[in-house]
Amino acid sequence: MIGFITKRLLSTIPTLFGVLVIVFVMIRVAPGDPALAILGDNASQEALDAFRDRMGLNDSMLVQFGRFLSDLAQGSLGTSMVSGKPVVTSVMEVLPYTLELALGAIFFGIIIGLPLGIISALWRNGWLDYFLRVVSLLGLSFPAFLTAILLILWLSIEWRIFPVISSPTGGPIDRIYNLILPALSLGVIMVAYIMRTARSAMLDVLGEDYIRTARAKGAPGRRLILHHALRNALIPIVTVVGLYFGLLIGNAVLTEIIFNRPGLGKLIVLSLNQRDYTTLQGLMVISAFLIVIVNLLTDICYALVDPRVKLK
């Protein structure tokens, strides 16, 4: 297991290096002068020069890239051009909020999507199945921000169950309470994806020979579905969850802004407004790492649900 994880992490180094190069170059060739953007149009030439000097913007690209890499090797993503705070610190401060939001969305996706998908498969082509399929199609085609706004209008403003602004500041209970509505609105897509995958996976599995074997053994219907079939149907479902995690992080940014919730989303908007290039660069690098780790976790989940997959 440890060996597998190390090997997988090592094998992502070329990919990550590619990401680093792209991020680095993108930021530098993007129009706009950070010194001008940060100090303003009225800054004196001396001030601008001093700023460029301090930030190392006068060095050649190669030198800058070397510095970027050696910083990274020491676990540093540099300091914010605006606040002077280490980028790693400001990202790590808000990352847990985004992660809990994404995990909350997956949680809702599973506890709602999985049972509905199974029901849909068991009553395939019945009216319930058609209804659920239409609903899931709506869930997929509805933009996340619209879902969020509708949920706020309905659950926060009309019924006053949840706060309009998600400000998780108190203890764990308060934190979960503040998480529910954003996670639910972000989870709608996940519900739809998981439901559709669960439906088709269950339909495939229920037609397999080993289900007939289980029936021939006298296994009752519930055991047939929840034990024999579901265990096998989980394999494609794990894939979908892993695959859409990246999409989820992307959508989380929007959700966070709508709910005015701390997280990567707010940090990105702030950094963009302030032209804080180092922070943006750090954000992208950390997101890339995140995706790598999620892929790794997906592979480990595979091995857990499918004994034919060996972690080597």
Partner: peptide, 15 residues
């Protein structure tokens, strides 16, 4: 009891 033609697919792969 019944046994089937296809031993490769008649056993549950995850159990």
């Amino acid at each position: 009891a019944m046994i089937f033609q296809e031993p490769m697919t008649s056993l549950n792969p995850v159990l």
